[in-house]
Amino acid sequence: MSKNVSAPLLRTARLLDLVPFLNTHQGIALKDLAAHFDVTPTQMSADLMTLWMCGLPGYTPLELMDLEFESGFVTIRNAPTLAKPRTITFQEGVALLLGLDLVAASIPENRIDLLTSVQSLRERLTRILGVPVRLSVVAAASGAVWTTISQAVTAHSGLEIHYHSLYKDQISQRSVMPVDLYDSNGHQYMRAFCFTANDYREFRVDRITSATSAAVPADLSAESTNPEKIRFRITVNNRSRDVAERFAISDMALETEIELSSYSRQWIERSVMASGATVTLNSPVEIRSELAKRAQLMLNRYKGA
């Protein structure tokens, strides 16, 4: 239901949906019915009272719906016209289709039965929507990795992972004890104690290339060290969306020095390098001169080759 639908209309929708539900749940307790529709029992009684006055033209007892709810249990008779559930709206269909995509990504490959069911549901829902809309959610992590790590979080058991560190350009093997999973800026992260680093680390789930459960020492006694942030200053030479997004600069002024900070020197070096002519790193001086040297060496190779 769209959010801008008014309260009386929401109630109308609820009443229309109550009839088919009661048809398949005859004798349901009033309080359970209220809970299912997320309203108070008093509101539900009022809803049923209203419904009781409705029916086919003529509105004699023969045409009115026959509702019984005084006993605290609800039954309905004589409501064939509204007996079937209402069809889903376009937005409801979109919500289910996108959700199903994500469900499909989490189903282990050997559950062909489930994957077939998802596919069949997708086709039937798309038919109801009536337009060939394309909808897709690509899950960030593979189903197998996600399954293994989320099980390890629940069971408090260790993991052996391969992790792609983008800044170091390395795939490292680590043994970790997961702490929890969380979302940040649209990415999922696993917080874990890393025995390889002997400290707490955060791993982006989509960069965990494989995960297997493994025994790890029970001792997580290491003190978490707080690495020092590196402050750096850049000047942006021309307007670039890529640079704004890479350095998370919301308000970009040209030819003005901007101060930023990062935990990773490699990230600073690579980000400035990738920005090419667009960004000048002013400080720290040692990173600046290192960059100039590296760019010159690369250039020599292109000139000499």
Binding site: S2, P85, E92, G93, L96
Partner: peptide, 12 residues
């Protein structure tokens, strides 16, 4: 909200 209202209909 849309997802839940769809499920409500399906539960019928």
């Amino acid at each position: 909200e849309q997802a839940q209202s769809a499920i409500l209909k399906l539960s019928s």
